[in-house]
């Protein structure tokens, strides 16, 4: 895979500053330089079904954070809150040191800065790939954020080339396979060159080769300086590529947070989070040793 410098490198030439009407000071315990600082987040759908029940989370630059949890534990909702798509009923979220609220995201400058820095790859590629052709799909984000048609075209060509899907440029999304759609969805986010990439269940419904490809891509993006946060309940593939795991309980709180090795050794924790089943002990222990060593290697890079 060829990594195009122009896309991956940190070339935010003076991005617009994030500042708008709603203000709240950063929490006192927030680590300096954190990308996301979330405190006491609560959210429920239709005012009935709880999804987040008091969630605290800090994300530091360069981290690869895996949000682990059973279906419906709230990890997808947390990603949507981090991307400013839904807003918590209680609690605060600071991104890049500034409060994220619905009101702030109505500010032209603020929203432009926020959206160009945070990219979100949805679980269901069908919802993310909505344009008539792949080229228009990938161009969408850049155009919304005010890039010229000339520069957009160049970037689209670069990113399609980088992901090896240049030949799909003029195809319609319904002609694509699941793996190809996922690549288009990722291309449409990478093209905006965000600092932070959020993935919701990135490997779900992908064939093994595509899963491996995606895992490698995530590592590569992280090595290029991108901060990565992703939700998963798949312990087999993705814990290889996390610097930190955050475990959600089924009552929508964070049970534990720590390096992958420590988390994966804690069988009681994984059982209570409904991430493993009693009968899967043996199998997991075998896998763990591998994960352990991986995590340590990576840990060396960043800490």
């Amino acid at each position: 895979m060829t990594t195009q410098e122009s896309l991956i490198s940190h070339d935010h030439a003076g991005p617009p500053t994030l500042s708008a009407g709603d203000h709240a000071p950063l929490p006192a315990d927030a680590p300096p330089g954190a990308i996301f600082v979330a405190r006491g987040l609560r959210y429920s759908y239709l005012d009935r079904f709880a999804a987040l029940d008091g969630v605290d989370l800090d994300v530091m630059p360069g981290e690869m954070v895996a949000l682990l949890g059973a279906n419906g534990s709230g990890k997808s909702t947390l990603l949507k809150v981090l991307d400013g798509l839904v807003f918590p009923s209680e609690g605060t979220l600071h991104a890049f040191g500034h409060l994220v609220t619905e009101g702030n995201l109505e500010d032209e400058q603020y929203v432009e800065a926020f959206r160009s820095r945070v990219g979100f790859v949805f679980q269901n590629s069908d919802t993310q790939v909505f344009s008539p052709t792949v080229r228009e799909e990938v161009a969408f984000g850049c155009l919304q954020l005010g890039l010229s048609a000339e520069e957009t075209r160049q970037r689209v060509d670069d990113v399609l080339g980088m992901l090896g899907i240049a030949d799909l440029a003029d195809r319609a999304p319904f002609q694509l396979s699941g793996g190809q759609k996922k690549k288009v969805a990722i291309a449409s986010v990478l093209v905006m060159n965000p600092e932070v990439l959020l993935f919701d269940e990135p490997t779900a419904a992908l064939d093994p080769r595509s899963q491996q490809w995606l895992a490698e891509l995530i590592v590569e993006l992280n090595a290029a300086g991108k901060t990565i946060v992703y939700a998963t309940h798949d312990l087999d593939v993705l814990e290889q590529i996390a610097t930190r795991c955050v475990v959600f309980s089924e009552d929508h709180r964070i049970l534990a947070s720590g390096p992958p090795g420590a988390i994966l050794d804690d069988t009681a924790l994984l059982l209570s989070a409904n991430l493993i089943h009693e009968h899967s002990h043996v199998h997991l222990r075998e896998g763990q040793r591998v994960e352990h060593s991986h995590a340590h290697q990576r840990g060396g890079h960043h800490h």
Binding site: K80, F120, Q128, E136, A139, F140, Q144, L145, S188, V189
Partner: peptide, 23 residues
């Protein structure tokens, strides 16, 4: 549900009600 998700996917990439397109 689909329209809600598509809407979020558009907003996530900077859509603010007026779409710009490649001409």
């Amino acid at each position: 549900q689909l329209s809600e998700e598509v809407h979020q996917a558009m907003v996530a990439r900077g859509y603010r009600g007026e779409a710009r397109v490649l001409d």
